[in-house]
Write a protein that binds this DNA or RNA. Sequence first.
DNA 1: AAGTTGACTATTT
DNA 2: AAAATAGCCAACT
Length: 105
Amino acid sequence: MTKSDLYARIYVVVKKIPSGRVATYGQIAHLAGMPGQARLVGYALHQLSDKSGVPWHRVINRLGQISLKGSSFENGRLQEKILRSEGVRLNNQGCIDLKKFRWIE
DNA sequence: AAGTTGACTATTT
DNA sequence: AAAATAGCCAACT
C-alpha cells in the first residue's frame, strides 16, 4: 500500500461527488477507508493538477467553507466560482449550508 | 537528518 | 453547548 494508492483512492471518492453537492475532507477520508485522515485528503488535493479530472472544488472543510489560504488563495477564488456555477449557494460569509449541500453517499 | 507545516477532524474537557 | 487538546502523515525546510 503506497501513498500513491491512497491518493488514488481519495481521487476515486472525490470523483463520486455529484455536481451541485459538496463533501468535507473528513467525509472523503472516511469513505476512502481512512477515517480521521482528513489532512491527507487535503494534501492529495493540493498535489492534484487541473487536468486530472477530479472535482477537487467540491471538497470543503467541515465548517462549510473553502479552506484555501495564503498562496492558494487565487485558486480558492476559482473554487468558489465553480461551486456557484454548479448551483451551490454560499451565504454572505462564504459559507456553504452543509445541511443542504452535503453529499450523502 | 531532524523538525516544522499544512486544502483537517474527532475526541475530550 | 462551546472550547481546548490530541492525532494524523506526507511534503517542505
